[in-house]
Design a protein around this nucleic acid. Structure first.
Lengths: 333, 333
DNA sequence: ACTAGATTTGAATGCGATTACAATCTGTCT
DNA sequence: AGACAGATTGTAATCGCATTCAAATCTAGT
């Protein structure tokens, strides 16, 4: 309950002096500082954030919108964000969109209310033009997913090249009939990974059979279902690339439920390298994304934006890399 | 940039009327409402949160402090919290303590600055007396971990009975030499689960060999290490209870690395029932916690506190239950 | 047409902090 | 001693909104 007035009274100074002790101590006499500080300590005084924000026209909270906080991939990124936010005196307001574009949009009002100074979008459910509009008015950075043709600061990985890398690896192992379990086609991420797959196949003059590419939704269950579908064809693939690790787990388990073995009968590769990928059996070969770094970079970018630093670069593509474990094997036919 | 003044001017009314349209429309003439609303729509006006908060002396953000957002257990709880927060017009400010008590304490200033109206603690690193003090001044609810002898609203599960349940199950399967990989002994959670283990063993007059209980820290790696330690003894246990699922995964993998099989040679049971437990092989038998419900209940409690509702109950213990999968087998000697 | 009563509106005030500017104090120099 | 520069402190305006209270407008009954 104790406000600046109370501190001022007890320290026998004006509220202006109290304020100065906190923000510009060099303009206040030594012993006054001491006296005021003691009272502050005593009363456990902390300046009211709302009043300060109103006066200063700035807040130190930023908004992060995630599609699903339960997904460890996003929580890793979030941790990166929080880490540099904290270092720089920012707090993060969490918006879980729950994979719902409407809900995602709802969070924009936080910005308009000036409740947050900026926003990091880990999602991509909002229409590109809306994002662009909001980004022209407020500091916004996109992480993980980029929006085609939108000129908003972005940090991401190159999903196309990552997918190409994974596919090439399978090809070099000798596989020719390669299946693909994609992410949802309405997400850039899903489309890009598919594109990378096609590119690699084309580069090696391999035919991709339409039946062998199935659309999942990044969930374990969909991986399981789609793999079962692939298994139902007369010519089953000898390797399949799942567009994320969770679906890869599903694929592996579907295969094993049919009495087949990974990688002896079918090789599986994933994408993301989440925490459980190395714990899973067989340990999953996958494309590793620098999740934590995506978070830190995104937050650094946002801070740059908020403090009006002129930026040399606003588009960052972080490196991904192939991590080899035990879910893929050679194939000779 | 458009404030209430701008709206008032364009709608040709005073700012008071604009404010009334938003908060007490029934006191404003029909057509005035319509006109004002149109301008508001037009300008995309949203009342400045800081000004509003300052005037009203209340905010709609609450603080949630988690030990580690990366842990799916906590992110599930968080999702529960967010879900009812959103329904009731609250936003959640996330504080990741990163398993660091100091950092945890740092978040308390958010409350003092009135940046958040209340707090949910999913951690328990802060000293009990400090928690009690802060809780006497601000709305605070504890979730997941309770603090002994602290009279603060709490929602948790009964870790003792859960652990007893898991142990009993192992005993009923015929196991006698049962090992335990505990959580850190400086956490209530870790101690309670150990207590449950001891209780069950005592109830069935089974001796617990000191060598067979090892202290881990809830991480996969510690599960792996501690299991290796257990495996090094001449009389290895026939079953081990790991105090959480991640450590259970570590235990299983340690066993398999030694060429032994789960559950044929050794049975493993975990605690938490995280998402990955049913995907893992063998699918892990474990104690399931109602994570989402813990979150919703905690948030409901907090809302009650913040709105000064008189509460019939402030201590909730949610049910846990044994979920049987494939990591435990019968033992006869 | 006039007035009491009901409805609608506007001007003034305060929330708690920051800060430009004015006022006061200190000590030094002439 | 008086004056002035520099250091220190206080005064008051301001941020954007909600709210109060009194003024303005409208309604209907006579």
């Amino acid at each position: 309950m104790s406000g600046i007035k109370e501190v001022a009274k007890q320290a026998n100074v004006s509220i202006a002096t109290v304020s100065r002790v906190l923000s510009k101590p060099e303009t206040v006499a030594e012993k006054t500082i001491k006296r005021v500080l003691e009272v502050i300590e005593d009363l456990n005084y902390q300046p009211n954030a709302a009043a300060r924000q109103l006066r200063m026209a700035e807040t130190t909270t930023i908004l992060v919108v995630v599609p699903d906080i339960t997904n460890t991939f996003f929580s890793d990124v979030l941790r990166g964000i929080e880490s540099v936010a904290l270092e720089n005196g920012y707090q993060v307001l969490l918006g879980d969109a729950d994979n719902n574009a409407e809900r995602e949009k709802g969070y924009l009002s936080i910005l308009r209310q000036k409740k947050a100074a900026g926003m990091i979008l880990l999602t991509a459910g909002i229409e590109a033009n809306i994002v662009e509009e909001i980004a022209s008015e407020y500091p916004v950075v996109l992480a993980c997913e980029y929006l085609e043709g939108v000129n908003v600061p972005t940090v991401s990985i190159d999903n196309v090249s990552g997918a190409r890398k994974a596919t090439e690896y399978l090809i070099n192992l000798g596989h020719k009939r390669i299946g693909f379990i994609s992410g949802p086609m309405n997400s850039v991420l899903g489309r890009d990974r598919l594109k990378g797959f096609y590119q690699a196949m084309a580069q090696y003059s391999l035919k991709v059979e339409p039946d062998l590419v199935q659309e999942g939704n990044f969930s374990y269950k969909s991986g399981l279902n789609m793999m079962n579908k692939l298994l139902a064809y007369s010519h089953t693939p000898t390797a399949v690339f799942a567009a994320n690790d969770e679906m890869a787990f599903g694929a592996v388990n579907a295969i094993e439920q049919k009495g087949l073995a990974v990688p002896q009968d079918i090789s599986i590769i994933g994408f993301d390298d989440i925490k459980f990928s190395s714990i899973f059996k067989p340990a999953l070969s996958t494309i590793s994304q620098p999740t934590f770094d995506i978070g830190t970079k995104a937050m650094q970018l946002l801070i740059g934006l908020m403090t009006n630093q002129k930026m040399e670069k606003t588009q960052y593509i972080l490196e991904n890399r192939l991590v080899l474990r035990n879910s893929c094997g050679k194939w000779s036919s």
